[in-house]
Every structure is written in C-alpha cells, then in structure tokens.
Nucleic acid binder design. Structure first.
Lengths: 157, 157
DNA sequence: TTAAAGCCGAGTGATTTAATAGGAATTAAA
DNA sequence: TTTAATTCCTATTAAATCACTCGGCTTTAA
C-alpha cells in the first residue's frame, strides 16, 4: 500500500516546475538536478503528465516544460492519478466505474471497505491544489516566521 | 497504490472466521475452501494476525481458529495493518512516529500531502468494525429485503 | 549550422509477490 | 496407545513489478 517513485518523484517534479514556472520554460535537467532525481527516469513520467493535461513541453533549444493550466486548477489528485493510475486500493469494477462485472458482486462485503478507503484517499488528494503547495513551498524557503508547519519538499523517499 | 493479496485475502478470511465463529474453532481448510483461497497461502498470513491479537489458534485434532477478542473490538484497520504493515503511502518517519529523521524535513512540502492521505486512510478503516461486516454479511446471505447495499464477500481480486 | 532540449522505445538487474511444498509439534478421538 | 486432524514453521520458486539506464530521433533558438 505504498506509492511508487512515480508518484513521489512526479509530485516533487511538478511542484518544482510550478515554483519555477514564471515566464520561461523550465528544462527537465534543472528539475532533476534540484530534486536529486535521475533525469532519465523523470523523463519517463512526463508522457503521463502531458496526456493528463498537467504539463506542456516546449521543444527545441531553450525549451522545457510549463504547466498546462494554472496551479490552482490542478489538484494533487490529478497529478497522482496521472502518475500512479487510479488511487483505488483494489481493482473492483463497482468502485471504479459503478458497473457490477464481478461474479461475486451480490455477496461481496469487503467491497464496502475498499469503497470507503478509495473515497477517502481521493477526497483527500482532490482537496489539495498545487497552488497551495507552491505557496507553502515559498513560505518555507523564504523562512517566513508565520509558518507553523515546517514542511519541505522531498520527503517520502 | 494497491493492497496486496495479503490484505484482500486476509480480510476475507477473518470475516469468514468471524461469521462462522460460534462455539467451535474453525479449521483453516474450511475457510480456504469457502473463500476459494489456497490454504497454504492463507497459512502464511496467520502469524501476522496472531501476533496482532486478532485470532487465536487451537492446535490438535478438531482444532482451528477463533477470534482473539469480540468482533466489535476489532477494526478493519487493525486487520489490514496487521497484514499489510502500516497503511502510509510513503515511508516517512514524521508521519509514522512524529520524529524528524529525514534530512530534508525542514523544506519538505510533499509530506503535507502524504500526511493527509495517511490520516484519511487510517481514519476510514478504523471506523469500520469487524462486527459491522459480520452483520452486513449475514444480511446479504439471508436475503433480508431491508438490505439496500447489495454487498458481498470476495470482491477485490 | 549547431547545440540544447524534448520525445520515444527497448533493455536490465534487483526486489517483491504470490504462491507451493514439506515436515515437525500438538491433541481429540478411536 | 495409536491415529488422524490440525496448527505451526521454514524453504524454495516462478512470475511480475520496480526503478532505473541507454541510445537515438526530432525540433528549434541562437
């Protein structure tokens, strides 16, 4: 029941991009270096983020990546689902799409549990927008004394 | 971000035990047969459940397993954590035990996300007692028409 | 023209998963 | 007192997944 490095590295990378996304595109090599993540590996995560409409690539020299939409329109749920696939604890059709294709569906009781877990995870991550993490990140890095959370940027190795 | 068969099979097995736990011990072979799970594999999950104080083994002929305490004192969280280990999405010391052993702890922002996920999962499963599943299971199997949930017992393969 | 960057797919070693198997210890019942 | 049922324990293994690495192609600003 652990997130893979796809989700952990990927969220850090998107946050790094969001923090440094001003007017110019951000090269993946910069993100990789700042975050201490292999660039080759990060590169593999990009297609997932691009297809999900989270980042856009700018090709050619001086290219890089930018957010495909404003950070307050991207939730951590969007990012994590793009990277990890659905965030359901089991592959159960009734939880994912409401269809009852499981042969045991009538007498299945544990699905009651899986559904509750699934909803709670998705509600949690959908409630955190990327913009909130960006703000928190800036607060931490500037050493603003109003910050009570003392959070950082690469936890969860 | 999926539960393994340890958690899925294990919860089904404990629920099966709870439903059939009357006065006599329930043999693992019976649980395995009813649930369609390899008995050899189920056997491997038992030590985890025993150490967590969830089931008790009765050795010898006519032996089997019984619940170590009443079903309304066992949460699905207890069962799943016994089988899967902690239900945190990342291995982060500050989430697990409150200690700040991570070198990036000061500037880590993503841990804010991991913490929210972790809390929501654990709150969800701690809020469902085994006794509730037993009741739901009996309602489903007896075909009680007051049942609106239409749940069953082995979903989440 | 060239170098910096994104884009794409194949390959790989290590780890984890999901089992299978065999045998020892215990105990109710014949 | 034997026997059979059952828990208990450990080792092995095939397959899958993970976490990368690598090489080459395409695009484009300078």
């Amino acid at each position: 029941m652990k997130l893979s490095t796809k989700g952990r590295y990927g969220l850090r990378a998107v946050l790094d991009l969001a923090v440094h996304d001003t007017d110019e595109a951000v090269a993946l090599s910069q993100i990789a270096e700042r975050q201490g993540i292999s660039m080759n590996y990060l590169e593999q995560l990009i297609p997932k983020l691009r297809k999900a409409g989270i980042v856009k690539g700018i090709r050619g020299a001086q290219g890089g990546y930018i957010l495909a939409k404003p950070a307050d329109k991207i939730s951590t749920g969007d990012i994590l689902r793009a990277l990890e696939g659905d965030l359901n604890p089991v592959d159960c059709a009734e939880i994912t799409n409401g269809e009852s294709t499981c042969s045991n569906s009538d007498t299945c009781v544990t699905k009651y549990v899986w559904k509750r877990i699934s909803d709670s995870i998705n509600d949690a991550v959908d409630g955190i927008m990327l913009s909130e993490l960006v703000e928190e990140s800036k607060r931490v890095q500037t050493g603003d004394p109003t910050d009570n959370n003392k959070t950082k940027q690469s936890c969860g190795k």
